Computed example of a mutant assay.
Amino acid sequence: MSSGARRDAAKQARTGPAGTVSPRQQTSRSCARSDVIISLCPPANAIEVAEAVATESFPGIYVDANAIAPASMEQIGNLLMPSAAAVVDGAVVGSPPSETKRPRLYLSGPEEPAATVAQLFRGSAVQPFILEGGIGKASALKLAYTSYQKASAYATTAWRRNSSTSPEAARPAT
């Protein structure tokens, strides 16, 4: 094997098949090219993504729009505050965009960066809303919304089960 072939094999082992980049390289490139980074990933990976961005000393606006607890959002804010210009808490509520539906993006945190992020979505299929208060308010709203949705679904299921098992259960109240 020639030295050039060995270098190519070593490079491919580090970066993957030709034309692909590692997640670390992608994070580094994104941080270098972006003024705003929006993290929208599985909640279990939210802190890991924030840590990766923090290691790049990202100087822009970092938006965490994951379905995480307010305490996790605070942890992410603490990770990024040393380098990021601002950390904004985000919560996506609603179905994917369609002709009849528009999801909402709730934002909380520093006022000016939240307004900058909201401006990015104006005129799009996503409706941005800025919440008063600091980091954690949007995450708390998402947590409350999700809890309401789950409780409503549970109550509806329980009502249907009870109503369908007995004809008397559906009789009019007197």
Results as ranks from 00 to 15, higher is better:
P97K: 05
A52M: 07
P17Y: 09
F58V: 01
L131C: 04
Q119T: 10
V53N: 01
Y145C: 03
T20D: 14
V53D: 03
P82R: 13
A169I: 03
A52I: 02
A91S: 06
M73D: 11
P42I: 00
S163T: 07
S98L: 02
I135N: 00
A44P: 01
Q26W: 10
S164L: 12
I38S: 01
L120Q: 07
S95E: 13
Y154V: 05
T27N: 12
V49K: 00
L105Y: 05
L79R: 03
V49M: 00
S108Q: 04
D89K: 02
N66V: 01
A69M: 05
A173G: 14
A5K: 09
S3I: 11
Y154F: 10
V93K: 14
P110A: 02
A125F: 08
P113H: 03
A52D: 08
S98K: 15
A52L: 02
A118G: 07
A50T: 05
L105I: 03
I61R: 11
F121V: 09
I68R: 13
E168W: 12
S98D: 08
S166Q: 11
R24V: 09
A32G: 15
S22G: 03
F58C: 00
A158I: 10
R6Y: 12
P23M: 08
A151Q: 06
A151N: 07
V117S: 01
S3W: 08
S164Q: 05
I47F: 02
V117F: 01
S72N: 14
I38L: 08
L131Q: 04
A5S: 12
V126F: 14
A153R: 15
K101F: 11
A153C: 08
A54L: 11
T100D: 09
E56I: 03
L131S: 08
E51I: 09
A50E: 11
L143H: 15
S98Q: 06
M81E: 15
S164E: 09
Q75K: 03
T156Q: 03
A91C: 02
S22D: 04
T157D: 15
T20W: 14
V88L: 00
Y145V: 04
S72K: 03
D35C: 14
G136H: 09
N66P: 06
S3T: 04
E132D: 12
A158E: 10
V92L: 13
P82K: 05
G133R: 12
A114F: 00
G16H: 06
P96V: 15
A67Y: 04
D35H: 10
R104E: 07
R29W: 11
